[in-house]
Amino acid sequence: MRPQDLSGAHSRLAGPAGGPKGAPVTLAALAPGLRVAIFADETGWHTRRLQAALRARGAHGRCVDLADCRVDTTAAWHGLVIPGFGRELPDAAIVRGIAGGSFEQVTKRLGVLHALRALGVPVYNDVRAIERSVDKAMTTLLLHAAGLPTPPTWAIESPVEAQRIVMRESAAGHALVLKPLFGSQGKGLRLVGRVDGFHCALPDLAHGYAGLAYLQRHVPALGEPGFDWRVLVVGGRAVSAMRRVSTHWIHNVAQGARCEPAALDADLARLAEAAARTLELDYAGVDIIPAASGAPLQVLEVNGVAAWQGLQRVTPFDIAQALVDDLLTRRVAPRHEAAARSA
């Protein structure tokens, strides 16, 4: 196999399951024999569900930590080593988690995903979309540029300028949420500005915030307890939603919020789908909060490596199976068909 023949990089995709040239590929014919890399920095409930969903389609999912992958141009024509796949590439990849590390380590891990994409391996979510969604400032910028409602937000390296914004917002009666730029599960969130009638100053950004102030105007709860929505979008379509209810202002399930089933009305679905489309995500967990005084619903965050254990408890269908089926039918099948036509 030579680098210039990328269409042949996955020979299994051009096998008998493809049928005659030009014939459509069914899900049942597609998956048997496919080997899928599940990239995760830790294994557990989510990876087990994905492996079970792949087995249900006759495919095999192998968990791999991106930290264990490497570039080795002596190992194979493509120059990558993916543990468990020998000299071959996986037929597809699902990104479940990317471990933190030094700038160099994270760059290498993302580089592996970029390389797989360039070599023709469907990566779900695409690495470029993950980069957009994991960077909260970029997420907010893209949502704002697309005209989607999201709270006023600032990302600033200057402590003096950040403190000036906090003072100005506080004087106007607003609280701000200080968040780590790269963070999840509600960790490191802090209210500054006007909080319960008192001014709360910005803390030292060197501790816990890597010298950067990512500030988002706080959207107060409409009642007690407060809530927001987590909407799951798969393949461009909102498929399920839940309310995350909490007496605390942080509504993440990891911080103790209670999961309740929620009706997926048209406005909620349209906004979540637009947010996922803006970031070009295959699937997304979109966090939306209601706003007071007739203001539109507000998109808080868009998660490109979204957990769904809490949502699964209040959702009647198998979310992992929905993700796997979307990967196979929308991302893998077109390559399968193209390979069958050229065989």
Rank of each mutant, 00 (worst) to 15 (best):
M1H: 06
R2T: 07
R2I: 11
D5C: 12
G15V: 00
A17V: 03
G22A: 02
A23Q: 06
P24I: 09
V25K: 12
T26S: 12
G33Q: 15
E42C: 13
T43Q: 00
W45F: 06
H46E: 01
R48M: 03
R48S: 02
R49N: 02
L54Y: 09
A56D: 04
R57F: 07
R57P: 04
C63P: 10
V64Y: 02
L66C: 05
A67C: 04
A67H: 07
V71R: 05
T73H: 13
A75H: 04
A76P: 14
H78V: 02
G79F: 05
L80T: 15
L80Q: 15
G86N: 13
L89V: 12
P90Y: 08
D91Y: 14
A92R: 15
I98S: 09
K108M: 02
G111M: 08
G120Y: 11
Y124V: 13
D126Y: 13
V127A: 15
V127M: 12
A129H: 09
I130K: 03
R132L: 07
D135F: 09
K136D: 00
A137N: 15
A145P: 12
A146D: 14
T150N: 04
W154M: 13
A155K: 15
I156M: 07
I156V: 13
V160I: 11
E161L: 11
A162G: 02
A162R: 01
Q163R: 15
E169R: 10
A171G: 11
G173N: 03
G173P: 01
A175I: 02
K179Y: 01
P180I: 14
Q185S: 08
G186R: 10
G186S: 08
L191M: 02
G193Y: 07
R194A: 12
D196R: 15
G197F: 10
C200E: 08
L202P: 04
H207S: 03
G208F: 12
Y209K: 15
L215N: 09
Q216L: 00
H218A: 05
A221G: 09
A221Y: 05
G223V: 05
P225N: 07
V233E: 03
V239N: 00
A241S: 06
M242S: 00
R243I: 11
R243E: 03
S246V: 12
I250C: 10
Q255D: 00
Q255L: 04
G256W: 07
G256R: 10
G256M: 08
A262L: 14
A262D: 13
A263R: 15
L268W: 10
L268Y: 10
R270M: 10
A275E: 06
A284N: 10
I288S: 06
I289F: 03
A292P: 02
S293D: 02
S293M: 00
Q298V: 03
E301K: 11
G304W: 12
A307H: 05
A307G: 06
A307Y: 03
Q309P: 00
G310T: 13
Q312H: 08
Q312V: 13
T315S: 08
D318Q: 09
A320S: 10
A320G: 06
Q321T: 12
Q321G: 07
L323Q: 13
D325R: 14
D326I: 00
L327P: 00
L328T: 11
R331N: 01
V332E: 02
A333Q: 09
R335M: 01
R335L: 04
H336Q: 01
A340K: 05
